[in-house]
């Protein structure tokens, strides 16, 4: 079986699983919406305050909602033994890990990008801010899924690892958060943000090429 075929098969299986358990797909999106609406209530409804805080709040909410769904990424595979079967075969495990991260991005990352413009409007972000938010999310969330897959693989065998997963993954995701949130804020002020966008794209490419090998090693450790 070719590596690409394997990755495609794993991706299709995971998407079928996600479709079957529709609730799991909805929870990151609902979490993103709820957390984003907390801040205006807690802080202030004034337009200038929200415009100032909007990019940062929306990015943090997106990051946390993706983190939420990472916990269960490999737990089920370890419990029902399907990851064992993949690890024993001659196929390349990194390809499987890349497919798992891609499935997680499609299920937990893409919906956030679709919802982001709506929430950006509630924060009175100008047009440039909204497009920048979507662009930075589009370039940044794949890296979050990939880095998150390493954390999820490492803590798959650990009981109640919610807090631990956040402690492991969030420091690694900081560059993405910094360039994403600050990039959106700069764009909202009308500045050109090609620099941050290029860097976010570079992070995504770097993560896509290196991280699957780390998460393959991580899952082998959890399977031990």
């Amino acid at each position: 079986m070719s590596t690409l075929g394997l990755a495609a098969a794993v991706l299709r299986r995971d998407l079928a699983l996600a479709y079957r358990r529709w609730g799991d797909v909805a929870s990151p999106v609902m979490f993103f919406a709820i957390v984003s609406s907390l801040f205006p209530l807690a802080l202030s409804p004034q337009r200038d305050v929200l415009q100032l805080l909007g990019p940062g709040v929306l990015w943090i909410a997106a990051l946390l909602s993706m983190l939420l769904s990472l916990n269960a990424l490999f737990r089920q595979d370890l419990e029902d033994g399907s990851m064992e079967q993949l690890a024993i075969g001659p196929q390349s495990l990194p390809a499987v890990m890349l497919a798992k991260a891609a499935a997680h991005w499609l299920v937990a990352g893409l919906p956030l990008i679709l919802l982001a413009p709506l929430l950006a409007v509630t924060y009175h972000l100008p047009g440039s801010g909204v497009t920048a938010l979507c662009l930075t999310l589009l370039l940044g969330t794949p890296t979050l899924s990939l880095l998150g897959s390493v954390g999820a693989a490492l803590t798959a065998g650990v009981r109640q690892s919610g807090g631990l997963l956040a402690l492991l993954v969030l420091p690694l995701c900081l560059p993405v958060l910094i360039f994403g949130a600050r990039g959106t804020a700069l764009a909202a002020d009308g500045e050109v943000i090609s620099g941050p966008l290029y860097l976010l794209a570079a992070f995504a490419v770097l993560a896509a090429s290196l991280v699957p090998f780390a998460s393959a090693a991580a899952i082998r450790i959890s399977l031990d």
């Binding site: 390493v150 490492l154 450790i221």
Partner: peptide
Amino acid sequence: DRAAGLLAVVG
């Protein structure tokens, strides 16, 4: 050891 070691290398 192995799990934390991998995290240190990624870190």
